[in-house]
Simulated scan of single mutants.
Amino acid sequence: MKFIHTSDWHIGRQLHNQSLLEDQRHVLAQIVELAVTHDVDAVIIAGDIYDRSVPPANAVALLDEVVNRLVNELKIPVIMIAGNHDGHERLGFASRQMRESGLHIIGPLNNTLVPIEIVGKSGNAMFYGLPYADPATVRHVFDSEVNTHEQAMVQLLEQVSEHDSQGLPKVVISHCFLDGGSESESERPLSIGGADKISSTVFTPFSYAALGHLHGPQYKGEEHVRYSGSILKYSFSEQHQNKSVTLVELTPEGVASIELLPLSAMRDVRIIEGELDALLEAGKTDLQREDYLMVRLLDKKAILDPMGKLRAVYPNVLHLERTGLMANNSQLAIGRDHIKKGELDMFTDFFSQVSGEPMSEEQQAVMVNAIDELHRVERTS
């Protein structure tokens, strides 16, 4: 059994207001070709198919184009689950009708597990799609008393453990945040205060865990508990990541062989730094000058229209920082750290400044619940 594990397509995403749709079309075509080249039995998408719950029409059209190529033309089954960015009900529309064609979409969480058996050229395997679900959703669907993301995941995995796969390898597909995973700035938090973290050990009993949410390719605990990472760099914090999809080959006994297949973007995402004149001169011979760039100018003097001057040489400068004007670099670092703070940290700072005293544990618990509820409403709206 051989399959490609991918995730976090985020179709429709923008980077600093720059549409990435054509960049996504370019890299998704590579995934289709890799599926053909390696003669895979299935393609897995572990959540965040779209970038938001109500995707734009051109994003829906691109997904339709890719799925049609894989399922209808190449006869390669596709399994996709809803991530925290996706609208579960919208993504799952007509999924029961599509199942027979080889397109398996797991949208809203259901209290009945529907295993998917994929027939491979050298063996079969059983796949279990678990869409992203916060503890409140799991409590509602299963009428259970779970309070953390880990408790919710354990509840879902009980069904997988109890299912009789007739000796076939078990592959779990999930969208979650493993404790100790390496984050990027482009990932939307699943919760706040660390309550979204899940131990990797809950997935180790299975033959392979195809995970989504974290954008850097990585594994935690055991090598078969793995994130494929996003298909493109979706923030400048990812500039040093090497994007790929994961080729997995399972023996009939469920032992996984893993290979990372690199993806090549139309334009790289990177940060360049220096004084304006030096950057403009270097840009004349920079073969990658059409990359998506963040520029950090070290000039300490005022400059008239620096963005215009830069874009005359680097057409895709998306963000400009005047770091040279910051007399105190420590203040710049503090400013960047402040931007990275989550809602709870920012409100905690605000509360302390206004009231003159820190928030109590009870007050923090109220805010955690309120912010989690706002995120949940945002995902379902």
Rank of each mutant, 00 (worst) to 15 (best):
A256F: 11
H175N: 03
S381Y: 10
R139C: 14
G229P: 00
L279M: 00
P189H: 15
F350D: 11
R226L: 06
L103R: 03
D179I: 13
G12S: 05
V119H: 01
N329E: 10
I116G: 00
V43E: 01
E373R: 12
G92Y: 05
S199D: 12
H149A: 06
A61E: 10
Q331L: 06
A35S: 06
G47S: 10
P205E: 04
K309Y: 13
V377P: 12
K75I: 03
E253L: 06
I371G: 08
S360W: 12
P55Y: 08
Q288T: 13
N111H: 07
A42E: 04
Q241I: 07
R296P: 01
D349V: 11
D41P: 00
E273I: 03
L325T: 02
P115Y: 08
G324V: 00
L304I: 05
A282P: 00
N316V: 02
A365D: 15
E253R: 06
R322V: 01
A282Q: 15
Y128L: 10
I173M: 06
A370S: 14
E158D: 12
H88Q: 08
L318N: 01
L287V: 12
A209K: 01
V225N: 14
P131G: 09
K300H: 04
L74G: 04
G229M: 04
E343V: 12
G324T: 04
K340P: 02
V138Q: 10
R376K: 13
L297D: 00
P217T: 09
K121M: 06
H338C: 10
K243T: 13
L103S: 08
G92S: 11
E223H: 09
L21S: 08
G12N: 01
E259C: 01
I371M: 11
M367Q: 15
S19E: 09
V66W: 04
Q151P: 03
M153F: 07
P315R: 13
I118V: 09
N242I: 15
R226Q: 07
D268V: 15
L232N: 05
P55N: 03
L113G: 14
S184I: 10
D286Y: 08
E361Q: 13
K340N: 03
S122L: 14
T204W: 15
L190M: 07
